[in-house]
Design a protein around this nucleic acid. Structure first.
Lengths: 116, 116
DNA sequence: GTAAGGTTTGACATGGGTGTCAAGGTCAAG
DNA sequence: CTTGACCTTGACACCCATGTCAAACCTTAC
């Protein structure tokens, strides 16, 4: 599929998709006219990239972790990547706890200790 | 107190403190030699600034909200600021929920649905 | 005097994913 | 042929709190 269609199906801008593709993160080939031709699997790949970006990885790290997903989206092999993501989850938990603590402090300052 | 001491007591770099002071966010005057002389209250002011930065405000927004804290650290007056911070808390809650959702997705990919 | 360590201002760098614009190729429809 | 919609690469802007470096002043200790 062409880049515009992939953008519509994923909600990601063509600019970002070209960037991901330039880093070799997407299954794509080139048509005779030079246009990118994305495989159907690229949709799922984009979802994974966004997931990994969301957890705080950079694109460089994404490039290392992405190949470790199997077709079902599970991370069975790649012990290194698994350990890295475990660490990322721990960081995520820390962030969540920190945000909750901060939220409590702020709500306290607002004298609204209950919900907003 | 001098800037280095404030930096030590707050854990914030002198660079950041000068930046805050340049924006008028800190109680300071100048000694005869031009050195900044921070009031004791600056310690608490720095804590508030960091809190507000942590919840996602920029320094410009901090400058608007900061004067609304009373001496006890409560935000009693300034309805505009209060409303802004309420909104910020809502955003914070959204962020927390999103992080938790993301964490769930990632843990699922790791086949570690329980705790890490 | 001079060395050391604090301080001042100013300017520039940084990150890093994405927006945006430029200049141009491709192709189907009228 | 022309128009318009799509695609290409490349370059630059941005955010914005903070790091970092330079040049210079103040003070104290030796």
């Amino acid at each position: 599929m062409l880049i515009n269609q992939l953008a519509h199906r994923t909600g990601v801008s063509t600019r970002a998709l070209r960037h991901y593709d330039g880093l070799g993160l997407l299954s794509s080939r080139r048509l005779g006219n030079g246009y990118r031709d994305f495989a159907e699997s690229a949709v799922e790949e984009v979802r994974r990239i966004r997931l990994l970006l969301d957890i705080g990885l950079g694109l460089q790290a994404v490039a290392q972790v992405l190949p470790c997903f199997d077709q079902d989206g599970a991370l069975t092999a790649c012990p290194t990547a698994r350990e890295r993501l475990r660490g990322q989850i721990r960081d995520l938990d820390s962030s969540i706890a920190e945000l909750q603590r901060t939220r409590g402090l702020l709500a306290g300052a607002l004298d609204d200790l209950v919900d907003i």
